[in-house]
Design a protein around this nucleic acid. Structure first.
Lengths: 246, 246
DNA sequence: CGTCACTTTGAAAGCTTTCAATAGGAGTGG
DNA sequence: CCACTCCTATTGAAAGCTTTCAAAGTGACG
């Protein structure tokens, strides 16, 4: 089952690192030597339950990762953007399906080689750890959102998260459908739509063409999104040094 | 702030591993040389926002880990049981508060030394990775539960998860309050109570004394809990070998 | 310019919450 | 050992937020 996986059988000769000069290798450098693959919107990169054989570096486009209940209910557990690495936090099998929301360009790398490289290159280990910590952090945020936030707070939190992660200005792009957003936020697409309309009517956002949204009154929005206790007054954590001593 | 942390300043001489003979060291062996500390019910082990300085091996008791919104809404993101290791998946600061549900006995280990040991001991790395993967897996399950399951499914899923993780027979222990369960399941304590009563009335569970519950008709319960698509017919994954090649 | 898919909007229904009161249980003190 | 108190759990009834069901609107694309 799950055999319609879109994974083609590609095997490349070992080419540990592309030329880096004297630079410390980055995790994502590992992928540099791999060919770029393209997936069209709607295509799956891998399926829940597939043997977790590979790790992916996302270059372009947006993916959704999700799980489905037996009766068809779907929960999107995350959206993956360019710069993200997909598929690390698995032991044997992928725990979710990864599907292209837009056209997507990726590079893939075998898990065996991936972890070999990490074993051989101490400098990579803190980076792997950082990825896993970021994934956990996002999951924590999402559990708080799903467990305790209202529909409006969820939508605004989502807009804010996209803004923080992706935006250059006040404009953000929402390439996913309302149904995708709903399945990510634990709502129905109608509720998402109503919240978007309501936010627009009250002047918090402007719905632009082609899946773009402009955020207005960021401070007010942040308030609506809801935040952790003490997070408000606490100064943004200045220290950002790597924790894994290497 | 958060300075009322229950972390006492303990510094011990380096004692890399307690005697192990020729056995391959286990991650939890690291803690063996550390003194056992006891926390009483309700006490915090660390607070959200504290510098993430230490890692904990839980020997006895149950903890809850949670985050709180500014208006007081609480989301418990997990319960920690004996055998679990707490506090690994952080970069700089703890992302949640950890509090004793019952009396708890733990050992602690500094993060610096912890990661040093892992750097020096390749055999430990797959174990650390496994912990992080398990945490992610649990978080995924929880997102599916919070985002797409009904109140009854959430409660049954919870009972089942406890059963799978902790039970020797059909009896399980729920040392946490209804409010704790509610904050974990994204419900109110009243709804949790109603679901428990309803399950008992229909013969799916028996509410025993002292926070014990007996599960009846496991198969029927499993059906109520909801499961992933294909999970039903798929044979339990037989392969369980470590994925990190070392 | 027509079609198809997605989005928005409306109205009613439903599940969970809220508010309130009763019941139960553990610990304390007489 | 029993009464008392406090805290937690249960139960009831009404309210509310989100969902469901339905229909109209919008936009992309051939």
């Amino acid at each position: 089952m799950h055999s319609q996986t879109a994974i083609s059988q590609i095997r490349h000769q070992i080419a540990p690192f592309a030329p880096l000069g004297d630079r410390v290798p980055t995790l994502r450098d590992l992928f540099k030597s791999q060919p770029i693959e393209t997936f069209t919107a709607g295509e799956a990169i891998f399926w829940e339950g597939d043997p977790a054989g590979q790790i992916f570096d996302v270059l372009e486009g947006v993916l959704r990762v999700y799980r489905i209940l037996s009766d068809g209910r779907r929960a999107i557990t995350g959206f993956i953007h360019p710069g993200d690495v997909l598929g690390v936090s698995f032991q044997n099998r992928y725990l979710f399906t990864a599907e292209a929301v837009t056209e997507v360009k990726i590079r893939r790398f075998g898990r065996g080689r991936f972890f070999s490289m990490i074993n051989e290159t101490p400098a990579l280990r803190p980076q792997l750890f950082a990825i896993l910590c970021d994934e956990m952090s996002a999951a924590q945020d999402q559990m708080l959102l799903l467990g305790r936030k209202t529909a409006e707070e969820r939508v605004v939190s989502f807009l804010f998260a996209i803004h923080r992660k992706r935006a250059e200005g006040a404009d953000i792009e929402l390439p996913m459908s309302r149904q995708d957003m709903a399945d990510y936020l634990g709502l129905t697409m109608e509720t998402v739509s109503r919240m978007m309309t309501s936010l627009a009517r009250r002047g918090f956002i402007v719905l632009g063409p082609r899946h773009t949204v402009t955020l207005r009154r960021l401070a007010a929005l942040r308030e609506i999104a809801g935040h952790d206790k003490d997070e408000a007054d606490a100064p943004a954590s200045p220290l950002r040094r790597a924790v894994w001593p290497n």
